[in-house]
Write a protein that binds this DNA or RNA. Structure first.
Lengths: 352, 352
DNA sequence: CTTGTTTGCACAATCGATGGTGCAAAGACT
DNA sequence: AGTCTTTGCACCATCGATTGTGCAAACAAG
């Protein structure tokens, strides 16, 4: 409480205290003072005052003037999911290391909401926007384009700007093959015993399904249409699909390709209503990685998407001048059952 | 591309187009026009122009003038964890419904980083700050206090402003009791067979430990000090603790109270290196809920903290004028093994 | 027709930082 | 001593919206 306890110091305050003009103070504190030939001693004085008065620049004012805000946005479908929250965590680290401020917002996979959210971010003059898992990336693109905002797609591709996405076809192949190979030669999996649940008509699902079908044909010789059940991404619609299958067939398929961890939660909900033992010999492949899921009582093979790789690539690409709208594929990783991988959290120090 | 493709329309543009003054345009578009006695027809004309030119206010300018930004901040330890990402998801929904913009940032449980992050958010003139799981809430408080920023603590309490936290003592008791009661009368759990792993010297851990010890004394008649092993929150330090215990005793304790899902990941890492069968009769209680963890091959009893309840309460409290720095306890919920609960995602529509 | 009131809006200062431009004082040079 | 350069900084417009104030025109009252 030694001084002005309630209001933040401005360059005008420091200007009075230092006897210099506001522009001099500004130049000193934003680093352009050499260019403006400010004396070292003047600069030192001002830096000193800034320190003792805890000056920090008002970013709204700076942003208004310079039409840049220092904010970098990440548009996510949802937060509470390991995949997307890893995105957020990794993104944040990258943005912070560039000395900017991350702003992470979700838009619920709703195209309308996606555009509105982008508009909102734009009204804060964000400097760049990373569009992750958007249902309508090109819709968001329109919004960004009209104001000249740099942007890039992640996870789901658009057609107007570069996209950095998982190699879902390859991942789908890897996962399908790994599932099939778990079955011994004397009790091989039949083509009609391996089902794919979840996902919807988006690029990622389509590619995974393409990989799934290709490998089934190659290894199992057949690929019945009925084995593909896109349920959307909501856990409960997935649960209902499992419920319906079980109702009709008295059991689950011998092996499942589950399209995402959120869909996998639908499987859990289904299982909660049925005795444990019914699923003792089920084999599951899940396109997403979750450490706990990896240790479930039946074999769970997972795909871990390379979040760090995607974010890193996305930052590289967005820095390029006028990049082509091409798609950059990042290879995912197959994770065998009972595997506990490290994640972004391990990079943090723990001051236990 | 019909019009000004590159720059956003401002009130000055609309002012020229409509033949009114900028202040009139401003008043019409921010809703204060009745107070300023603007004719309905004038207002209609301006609204119309705004619509066709896709006008949206520059929030930096507005914020600069009104020293409010429409941003509400949430300071988190980390993103990629179900508990905190649920916080983010729930927080976002609340903020959005108030017509404001959420800004969620993590600070890695580092007191220094927490303060710096708060400073940064303040430089954007955020309107309120929710401090969640901060290692040093009172440090962040100082920062907020000097600029008169409304703030509140969640998950970990501070002493200067109200805090909304889980009832960790009660939760610790519930979980401990549930663990103990899982053992049959003929093979009861002994006091030296139930260990607590994880957490550190923060309010939440202390309260949970207090509940743990109280119930052990009440039900098991004893409470050996050696059964408490705070390992910090990093998964790997927890893993090492399990490793060390196993090394020394040739097995894990019969029952574990694991302080958080992040610590639980440490247990998984430990398990990955050992044969499955070694843990067939392990009983685990975990203070956090994760649907996949709930279905692991050994009984896992979990505590789900009431994230929705905490956020709701926090918004209530922060709206009050000068609230007392008291602690509001929100009861958590005990979750039996093999339970798949719904979460914030279920509130979203899925346009599958 | 004059005075008083209401209606409808324009004007201008302001928020805090930025950056182009101008200009006095100090130093260099002939 | 007079001219030219360099140094060191102040001045001021600007970004876009908000808001207190003032004032003409329209209308009402007497």
């Amino acid at each position: 409480m030694t001084k002005t306890s309630k209001k933040k110091a401005t360059i005008y305050d420091l200007s009075v205290l230092s006897g210099s003009s506001p522009s001099t103070v500004s130049a000193v504190l934003n680093g352009t003072w050499q260019k403006r030939r400010i004396k070292e001693s003047t600069a030192a004085l001002i830096r000193d005052l800034a320190e003792t008065h805890q000056y920090t620049a008002n970013r709204q004012a700076r942003g208004l003037r310079s039409s840049r805000s220092g904010l970098i946005g990440l548009l996510l479908p949802v937060h509470d999911n390991r995949y997307f929250s890893s995105m957020a965590q990794t993104f944040e680290a990258h943005v912070r290391s560039k000395g900017q401020c991350p702003i992470v917002v979700s838009a619920s996979r709703d195209p309308e909401e996606e555009r509105r959210t982008a508009e909102t971010l734009i009204s804060y003059s964000i400097d760049e926007l990373f569009i992750c898992g958007a249902t309508d990336p090109d819709g968001v693109h329109e919004v960004c384009e009209t104001v000249g905002l740099k942007h890039i797609n992640i996870d789901l591709p658009g057609t107007k700007v570069p996209s950095v996405i998982s190699d879902n076809y390859e991942g789908g192949r890897m996962l399908t093959e790994a599932i099939i190979r778990r079955f011994p030669a004397d009790q091989p999996l039949r083509a009609d015993e391996l089902y794919l649940f979840g996902g919807r008509d988006d690029h990622a699902s389509r590619e995974r399904i393409r990989g799934f079908r290709a490998v089934k044909r190659e290894l199992l010789g057949d690929d019945p249409d009925g084995c593909i059940l896109p349920t959307g991404y909501a856990p409960n619609t997935a649960r209902l699909a499992f419920e319906a299958f079980y109702e009709k067939n008295g059991k689950l398929p011998r092996a499942l390709f589950v399209n995402s961890s959120i869909n996998f939660e639908g499987l859990l909900r289904f299982m909660a209503g049925h005795p444990h033992e019914n699923f003792a010999d089920l084999t599951v492949g899940c396109y997403d990685y979750d450490p706990f899921a990896s240790f479930l009582p039946f074999p769970v093979i997972m795909i871990r998407q390379d979040v760090e790789g995607m974010i890193t690539k996305a930052f590289e690409v967005i820095e390029e001048g006028r990049p082509q709208p091409r798609i950059h594929l990042i290879s995912p990783e197959l994770v065998q059952p009972r595997t506990a991988l490290t994640g972004p959290l391990d990079a943090l120090k723990d001051i236990g």
